[in-house]
Design a binder for these strands. Structure first.
Lengths: 163, 163
DNA sequence: TTCTTTGCAAATCGTTTGCAGCATG
DNA sequence: CATGCTGCAAACGATTTGCAAAGAA
């Protein structure tokens, strides 16, 4: 994702307005590595901008996705996650708390191996997701307590279990 | 996923019943490579079993996932897809019609490269998804017509565009 | 018969949309 | 001052759940 300076130029160039709400969402995303959901960002921003609405957060996120500035992905926890890093890279996803983090450098296939075409498909991008249990959840499961897993819509999971 | 013979044994062993509905869903999945949604399976089965309900399809799919027989995944089209192939492998996903197919053999990282641990995470499985445009959609886009893209909840996409 | 499963109808809940008032350029 | 943006409230829709009737074992 480009920085707010450039986005401001872009939005003005197409007759749009650089409203405080838009800029706030842009800034919140700028160096974010937490792969937040719309609700995450809303909660974070509400503190300094109490009048902000969740609807607006969704509007701004969706337009960023349309502009190709933001990647939107579903890990199966019932919430859409967003990532300002639009280059292909690997991610680590906890099956229990649904935390998402970038995999350490060197993990996953190098970006240069992304083919242009595969089985007749024009390939645009690739995602690699490693599912497992994060250190906190491993600890919590070891103790046997329930810990405090993050949101989980009804009983959804991404399909695997065990330890 | 194991075949219906084995699943029948399993379900009976734990005091369950091999109902026609369950067996029908198992059979439908047995050699399926289309990565269907619950609705897909329901539509397919309704023809030969008109009394089957969508609720039951969900019940059966969810228990298969709990048993570790079925992988459940979200491609961002607003529908949960299911895959009886639970081994790590790469998939091709069309950004326009949301068709999912297995990548040709040799594409993606070999299964043996799945690490046990990564950044403190206990790794259980990995998914590799290649996003792009399938031959049909490339053709449709070339013609400039709208073609007939498969389901798409409101205006969701998985994040990328262009050709 | 007993205990599981089915399937209808209703509830959930993240996300999207309609629209009236507001604020940016 | 005109148009684009915000945000409330309502709509949406895939999936889940409560529960009474049905059917395996």
């Amino acid at each position: 994702m480009r920085d707010s300076e450039q986005l401001m130029a872009r939005v003005r160039a197409q007759g749009g307005k650089a409203t405080p709400q838009r800029v706030a969402v842009w800034r919140a995303l700028e160096h974010d590595q937490t792969h937040p959901t719309a609700e995450d960002l809303y909660a974070r921003l509400k503190v300094t901008m109490p009048t902000l609405s969740l609807t607006t957060v969704y509007h701004v996120l969706n337009e960023l996705v349309e502009w190709g500035e933001l990647r939107r992905f579903d890990i199966g926890d019932g919430h859409i996650h967003f990532d300002p890093d639009t280059a292909p890279h690997a991610e680590l996803i906890c099956l229990r708390c649904h935390r998402v983090m970038d995999a350490p450098a060197g993990v996953g296939m190098p970006a240069e191996t992304l083919p242009n075409e595969l089985a007749g498909y024009r390939i645009i991008t690739r995602t690699e997701q490693y599912f497992g249990y994060c250190p906190d959840c491993r600890q919590a499961m070891r103790i046997g307590s329930q810990g405090r897993p993050r949101s989980a819509l009804h009983g959804r999971s991404t399909g695997d279990a065990g330890d």
